[in-house]
Simulated scan of single mutants.
Amino acid sequence: MEIIEILGYKRANLGKAESKKLRINAQVPGVLYGGQEQIHFYVPMVLLRDLIYTPNAYFVDLNIEGVVYRCILKEIQFHPVSEMILHVDFLQIFDDKKIKMEIPVAFVGKAIGVAKGGVLSKKQRKLAVFGYPKHIPSIIDVDVSNLDLGNISRVHQIQTEGFTILALPSTPVASIEIPRALRSAASKEEKKGKK
């Protein structure tokens, strides 16, 4: 798993007025929990960009005034109108504690059904996984090369090593849709064959 380093600063004063001041100065208030104590901090908004506006999953080395905490982004709050980042929550992680995390899905291979004119439909962009940090992958590869027209790839077909996917085994991940034009051509051929 790739790691992003983010620099943060401890917050002396808590409360709505203080949070508002921070946001005006392009700083985002946040909380780090999961360790021995909760740590209230703030980080420059610009430093969160690579972590938030990406489909990728990352571990974070949160450096708060020289002390580095390995963590993951747990929750983020946006302003409903301006989309400005209002607050971030990080969860400190430890090698001996399992974590739950959303991991992006990558579709690999060229599906047989696509070569025949079908369309690859990506049903899941991310999957929630559970495991020890060292086993959490940065991407879940889903091989679609064997998918023919009308076939579906499901969660139980994904190879996992040291982690569990937190979705029903029957959950569809990808399928090969048959376009209407291809369907009508097939039914015309069928009708011809019956004559």
Rank of each mutant, 00 (worst) to 15 (best):
G66H: 05
V46T: 14
E83L: 09
I6E: 01
I139S: 06
D61S: 10
I165C: 02
P169W: 07
E2T: 15
D96Q: 13
V43T: 09
R49Y: 09
K20M: 12
D143N: 08
K97S: 11
Y9M: 07
I140F: 03
E177K: 05
E75I: 13
K16E: 14
L48Q: 01
I24T: 14
R180S: 13
E161I: 13
R183D: 14
R154D: 01
K116C: 12
S184L: 15
G35I: 14
L166G: 04
E189A: 08
V144C: 00
P29R: 09
D61G: 06
I103N: 04
Q159V: 15
I139G: 06
D50V: 14
D50E: 08
K97G: 12
F59M: 06
T164D: 08
N146R: 08
I93A: 01
I165P: 00
M101F: 05
Q124Y: 02
I176L: 04
K74Y: 11
L47I: 10
V31S: 02
E83C: 08
P137H: 05
I85F: 04
F107S: 02
L22Q: 02
N63Q: 10
G34D: 07
R154V: 10
K98I: 15
T160F: 06
K192P: 03
C71L: 05
L22M: 09
I152E: 02
L91W: 04
A12C: 11
V155P: 00
I72L: 06
F59V: 12
I85C: 04
G193D: 10
I178L: 09
I93C: 06
G30I: 06
D50Y: 08
E65D: 08
A26P: 10
Y53A: 07
R125T: 15
A167D: 04
I76Q: 01
F41E: 03
E75V: 12
E65Y: 06
G131E: 04
V60Y: 00
L147G: 03
F41G: 00
E177P: 03
A174E: 01
Q77E: 11
D95M: 12
L14Q: 08
N146F: 09
A26Y: 13
G34L: 09
S121P: 02
V43F: 03
D143V: 09
G150D: 11
L147H: 00
N13D: 13
G66R: 06
Q27R: 12
L147F: 01
K126M: 13
G193I: 15
L73P: 01
S145H: 10
K126L: 10
L62A: 03
V129N: 00
M84Q: 14
N13I: 15
A115D: 14
F130G: 00
L7Y: 11
S187D: 10
L51T: 08
G8M: 07
F90K: 02
E5H: 09
